[in-house]
Computed example of a mutant assay.
Amino acid sequence: MKLLFVVNNFNFGGPQKSLVNLLYELEGHGIEADLMIMNQQDKLSSYLPDYVNEVPIHSKYSLLMLDKSKIIKNIISNIDKPIFILKVLLFILKSKLKLQDNTKAKQNFWVNNKWNTSEFEKTYDFAIGVSGGHSVYFIQDYINAKHKIGWIRTDYKVLKRNHDLDYQYFKKMSGMLAVSNMTAKRFEEIFNIKPSVFYNSLPIKLYENIESENFNTDSKYMNLCTICRLDNGKGLDLLIEAAKILKKQKIKFNWYIVGTGKLEEWLKEQILKNNLEKLVLPIGFKFNTGNVLKKMDILVHPSRFEGKSNTIDEALYYEIPVVATNFETVYEQIVDGENGFITNMNGNEIANRIIELCEDEQLYKKIKSELHNNKRVPENKGKEFISILYQLGDNK
């Protein structure tokens, strides 16, 4: 079976790590797999299994999706397309002046400026737009495949996209995948298209194939961690609120923040402003988050929305109690009071649940026991994925 996976970017992130792990699990199933990266950000490429072939694509596609990374270099590389470059520069100007809704404007830009010829000659059995959005547009407009599959990774209603334009692409797919029951339900409500649910592949095999990074904790403290992009929607303000309360209550804790993102400087400022520098510890990017989780007492996940949290699934696998906010998909992962706690979206409730786990040894042991007795052993996701592809292909 010839498969093509298309991603918007292939930098370090939960969906990308899940894809790499899925590729490991597809090995030995008679798969020939190609990967295309639309914006050439390929930090994860060195972790790909040997049988996967990365197919380079021209930087013009990165400009067509108006990706900010390397934009000057990409403009120079495409200087032989002056009208197209002028349109890109005009878009950037409008964006800087806040004259447009960028999300919808990017969709329109693709549709209005795409070219009608394709340099990709190979025909695939299945082409999968892994990142939704532009990756789905790309496989529909430029790839030859018997079947084309879109993959939805978050609650579609929060994306603020042009649904009518997306529908023109989605209705042409052989099928859609969603990462959780809730994301599938939301998608069906909006588009009247029912996706197949395929939960993310936990990157356990991936972690087994790489060296662990050195990471040490202090057993005299309660070791908490939050693993996320430092980005809007991840509840970092709630984290700071909760940490202030823990400090005031004289809880002995170290709270490790794993990740990078646009709120990195904001987070550092908030830590200094609230005198939390010895307690809240940003440690940057760690690829092997499993290695971090194994040394933690509690995972705290204060997000405002998620398609489905890979981090929570990893914590449950490593038998780490979770305190998470009540975003909609959390109920597919956490049973409140059994394998963790679900709180409202405020720092006070998050802190209170952490304090309970710190101070009530019996409660903590009960949750650890529940996690051990009901450990979710990763299934053969490669076999499941192939089965779903065949079902979607047969339905079309």
Rank of each mutant, 00 (worst) to 15 (best):
M1E: 02
N11S: 14
N11W: 04
K17C: 04
S18C: 11
V20E: 00
L23P: 03
I31V: 15
L35I: 06
M38K: 05
P49C: 04
V52S: 10
N53C: 00
E54I: 12
H58Q: 10
S59W: 04
K60S: 09
L63R: 10
L66V: 08
K68I: 13
S69V: 02
I72Y: 12
K73W: 00
K73N: 12
N74M: 11
S77V: 01
N78A: 14
I83Q: 11
F84L: 12
L86K: 12
K98M: 11
K98D: 12
D101R: 13
K104I: 13
K106Q: 15
V111R: 06
W115M: 14
W115H: 12
E119D: 03
F126A: 05
G129V: 06
F138G: 02
F138D: 07
I139E: 04
Q140P: 06
D141Y: 05
D141Q: 02
H147S: 12
G150T: 08
G150C: 11
Y156N: 00
K157E: 10
K157C: 04
L165V: 14
Y167M: 12
S174R: 12
M176P: 08
N181S: 09
N181Q: 13
A184K: 07
A184R: 04
R186Q: 04
E188G: 08
F198K: 14
I204D: 06
L206S: 07
E211S: 15
E211K: 10
D218L: 07
L224M: 11
G235R: 08
D237F: 04
A242L: 09
K247Q: 13
V258I: 14
G259L: 12
T260D: 02
G261C: 05
E265Q: 14
E265N: 15
L267I: 09
Q270P: 11
I271F: 11
V280T: 06
L281P: 02
F287I: 07
T289K: 00
G290N: 14
K295V: 03
K295S: 13
M296Q: 02
D297K: 01
V300N: 04
S303A: 13
T311I: 06
Y317S: 10
E319A: 14
V322C: 10
T329D: 09
G337Q: 05
E338L: 09
E338G: 03
E338A: 05
I342C: 09
E356C: 11
L357R: 08
E359M: 13
E359G: 03
Y364T: 00
R376G: 01
V377F: 06
N380T: 00
K381C: 04
F385N: 02
L389W: 01
Y390L: 05
K396G: 14
